[in-house]
Design a protein around this nucleic acid. Structure first.
Lengths: 237, 237
DNA sequence: CGACCGGCACTGGTATACAAGCACTGGTCG
DNA sequence: CGACCAGTGCTTGTATACCAGTGCCGGTCG
């Protein structure tokens, strides 16, 4: 009776591929996304590519200029700030809703996650995955895990900025320590301490963005209206 | 230089039409949405209809079962609760971020809005519009107005539920009074009072949902997996 | 009578063809 | 020399054709 929710449609595959490439900066901000090129490169027709771009555009990761072109959106500081605000609001509110009796399985999962974060020689991509899982689990602990999906789709801009920040500093160990601090406050039932630790943590992430912005301004949007520039590069092969 | 951001594409028109019809319950939860029928009814091809359905599906307002059909999603209490939680988190956090000096124009706008809410014989649709504008303006007052877009797209389920609630009670005057209470606390600079008033208000909205649920359970989802039922109605014309 | 099973009608998924619009280019004309 | 203006090649937008999958229905067979 249970329907397999995971559809193996090529649209989903294309969407996930593109989203990953945008978030990992493999497709850098400002890059042109031609439906035809992508379709050819991915071995599908324009339709799934187009539909994926529309989805990404709704998330704010891609900008579509009708009859002109689609581009990976530049990191808009205002949107980053919004995502930051939203995330902070949600995660702090979740800490207020923690039940008296914490779910043992989730606590164990968090503990393993934190141990993994301390592992020496950790890949940055792996750290990101762990970081995601940590915050998600924390949200589930308060019974609002499914709100995470909304946070995820809203924080695309923030993610790219964070990634820039981490590639820059290359020292996520400080963040791991903050995770531990939050976790222990939660375990100890000290909601106020947990809140303040979480706030400090999220603000630290946010500050990283500003640091990168000073260094790599070309990745950030200046005018929100943006200027569509058609690349006119002819490649001779 | 400024590009007209408002594109008059038929996709946008179709999307807005469908979204409105779903939110106003003109297309009730559980209704079947055939791409072909919609295309014919709206006088366009399947493509814009299909793309609109995909967008609505990402918002959670529509469920697409491949090779089976698309349906207006039923009101999922869990999702309503999530939207409620998210909204509460964001709006309360915004109240904490209010600047010392409030924007005079926005205050005036809020004042006019509230006056309008008190107008006797107010249409329910109008009240909803005012309610939206009120909360949005309140968010802008704290400088996080653009986060409203995320809240809007996430609270589709909540909106439908609220609408059911208001059609049911048919007495939005109580909500208007709560709006005034929040506004005056904000004006008085009493953040704590504003927070508690806002929380009371949002919880009251939420409670309405449960009341409706007891009365009209067919509009709510039971299993999240949902059961696709193909209507087999033959119409003789 | 009841279980089975194949045709059928309909679904959304994908591919493709055509239309409309923008931007650059290179020429002409004032 | 500079402004203008069709030409051209690209873009996305829309329409349409075809495909695979799924539930229903009715005939058939045990």
């Amino acid at each position: 009776m249970a329907r397999s929710n995971r559809q193996r449609t090529s649209r989903r595959a294309v969407y996930e591929t593109l989203r990953r490439k945008v978030l990992t900066l493999e497709l850098p901000p400002g890059a042109a996304l031609s439906e035809n090129e992508l379709a050819a490169a991915l071995g599908v027709s324009r339709t799934p590519v187009r539909e994926s771009l529309i989805l990404l555009s709704q998330e704010g990761l891609v900008q579509i200029f009708p009859q002109v072109g689609s581009f990976v959106s530049r990191v808009d500081p205002a949107k980053v700030a919004d995502a930051q605000f939203l995330r902070e609001a949600v995660e702090l509110a979740a800490l207020d809703d923690l039940p008296a009796e914490l779910d043992a399985d989730l606590v164990e999962e968090l503990r393993r996650n934190l141990a993994e974060q301390e592992r020496p020689g950790l890949d940055l991509e792996d750290f990101f995955e762990l970081d995601e899982a940590f915050h998600h689990a924390l949200l589930r602990l308060s019974g609002h895990g499914s709100a995470w999906a909304t946070v995820v789709s809203a924080k695309g801009h923030l993610d790219r900025a964070r990634r820039l920040g981490l590639y820059d500093t290359a020292t996520p160990t400080g963040f791991a320590a903050q995770h531990v601090e939050i976790f222990e406050a939660v375990l100890g039932g000290d909601a106020a301490l947990a809140r303040s630790a979480m706030r400090t943590h999220l603000r630290a992430v946010f500050d990283d963005v500003e640091r990168v912005r000073a260094r790599s301004p070309e990745l950030f949007a200046k005018d929100t209206g943006s200027v569509p520039v058609r690349r006119n590069v002819v490649v001779w092969e």
